[in-house]
Structure formats: structure tokens, C-alpha cells
């Protein structure tokens, strides 16, 4: 479970995240939606401990990520929006490196590497350097590395970018499986169709402020519109502008 409690983050005079609070419960997939520059990535970076909030707290399964960062990070598997990392390592070296960081048992990591590299059709690429990968392949190798660590909390920043439809479908299925196993899945996306299909709850942020948190049904009730998530989203995020 992720508990986000009154977090605020400013860059100079600009408030990127403004007193945002909500919980991402275990066993549910929560989509984090918002227009460009709404504060999604900043919030995710604060949750993962990469950025410090000016105020507020984030608890990962009850562990404060500022007070006990290493313990909090052990529970998180994070797939960033930019996967251009450790490009000179080979795919297998990168996965093994991440597995070492999380202390995954060698037999378990071997079995998981085989399973997930087969699932994402990356078996023929593990021995190549990441720098030779396409954007989608980098996304896949990051996903495999996270899956090998079997985290309690799965955080994904724009995970669909660059993935082919086949891999995308597999990733969605995995997200559902993780949630069904009682794990926490929290991801940001611009693809509202995807969010509509796989999310149990959605959090909508705009201008650094949380506009809505709840199920799609609650959103329909709140906005008073029986349309698609796209229509609800537009109505909610454009309400101030009209």
C-alpha cells in the first residue's frame, strides 16, 4: 500500500505538487492521470524517493520513505519513463545487477529471467548491450528487471510508451496478476483507453492538485456524465478553463 500524505513540491515559485493526499491500496491497480505538466512524474518521483517533497509524507507499506529510505525502496519496483539507463551493460548483466541490489536468490532469479524474457520475447537479446536496443526493448528489459525482484509495490511511469501491442497486452496482464496477488500497482499514463480497461481506481491531477480519486463509477457520478473516461477526463481537467 502507498500512502501519500499532504505532499507539496515547488520549483522556485512554481508549485509542481500542491498538498496531494491519497492512498493506493494493495490488490488494486491505480491509474494516475493528468495533462502534460500536471505533476504526475514529480509525484511518482517523490513516492519512489528520488525527489524530496517540501512537506508531507509517503509511506510504502507503512515504511516512511524519508525516514527509512532503503527499507522503503526494497519494496518498490519502478519502471521509469526514460529507460536509457546503464546502456553499456548487457541485458542479462543489467537484470542480474538489479537482482543483486534486491538480494534475489540465484535459482529464483534464473527461473524468473527465463520466464519473463520468454514472455517478452527478449531471449535473443539478453546477451546484447542495452545501447543496441530499441526504445521498446529497453522498456521490456526494465520490466523484466523489476519482475525478477518481485516487488510488493509496482510503480510504472508511462509504461506503454514504445511497447508493441503484443508486449503491451502482456504487461497489462502482468499488472492484473500482480494486483490479484495482493500487490500494489500504481502507474501513470496518457492513454485513457488503457486506464479505462485495467484500472480499479484512478487519480486525476491537474496543476499539481488532486482533482479526483476513486473508481470510474464514482467519477461518473461526480462529474454527472455517463460517457467514456476520455469525456470525463476532459470535462474534469478542462472545467476551470471554460
Amino acid at each position: 500500500m502507498i500512502q501519500i500524505q499532504n505532499i507539496t513540491k515547488s520549483y522556485g515559485d512554481f508549485k509542481a505538487v500542491d498538498d496531494v493526499s491519497f492512498d493506493v491500496p494493495s490488490g488494486r491497480i491505480v491509474g494516475f492521470l493528468g495533462p502534460n505538466g500536471a505533476g504526475k512524474t514529480t509525484t511518482i518521483k517523490i513516492v519512489t524517493g528520488v525527489l524530496n517533497a517540501d512537506s508531507g509524507n509517503v509511506l510504502i507499506n507503512g515504511v516512511n520513505n524519508r525516514a527509512n529510505p532503503v527499507e522503503a525502496k526494497k519494496q518498490i519496483g519502478y519502471i521509469p519513463d526514460n529507460n536509457d539507463v546503464f546502456l553499456r551493460l548487457k541485458g542479462i548483466e543489467y537484470i542480474n545487477f538489479i537482482a543483486d541490489m534486491y538480494g534475489v536468490d540465484p535459482q529464483v532469479r534464473k527461473e524468473r529471467i527465463q520466464r519473463y524474457s520468454h514472455l517478452f520475447e527478449m531471449e535473443n537479446n539478453l546477451n546484447d548491450k542495452i545501447v543496441s536496443y530499441s526504445h521498446g526493448m529497453r522498456q521490456k528489459i526494465a520490466s523484466i528487471a523489476v519482475l525478477v525482484t518481485d516487488p510488493a509495490v509496482w510503480i510504472l511511469d508511462e509504461p506503454m510508451t514504445g511497447l508493441d501491442p503484443n508486449s503491451f497486452a502482456k504487461l497489462k496482464k502482468l499488472m492484473r496478476e500482480q494486483a490479484d496477488m495482493g500487490k500494489t500497482v500504481f502507474f501513470s499514463t496518457h492513454v485513457l483507453d488503457v486506464a479505462e480497461k485495467i484500472c480499479d481506481d484512478v487519480a486525476i491531477i491537474k496543476g499539481g492538485k488532486l482533482q479526483f480519486y476513486g473508481t470510474l463509477e464514482q467519477l461518473r457520478e461526480d462529474v454527472g456524465n455517463g460517457g467514456s473516461l476520455e469525456e470525463l477526463f476532459l470535462e474534469l481537467t478542462e472545467a476551470d478553463e471554460n
Binding site: 548483466e93 537482482a99 541490489m101 540465484p106 532469479r109 534464473k110 529471467i113 531471449e123 546477451n127 543496441s132
Partner: peptide, 22 residues
């Protein structure tokens, strides 16, 4: 960089998953 696009052999995989301290 160039890529070989070759599947890891059993020995390479075994070697590749060796556990080390952080």
C-alpha cells in the same frame, strides 16, 4: 553498437545469474 541477437547458452545463463553482494 552492434548486436548479436543470439540466445544465451545454458552456461552463459548460469554464469550470468551468479549472486554477488551489493
Amino acid at each position: 553498437a552492434t548486436a548479436s541477437r543470439k540466445k544465451l547458452s545454458a552456461a552463459q545463463l548460469e554464469n550470468g545469474v551468479k549472486k554477488s553482494s551489493a
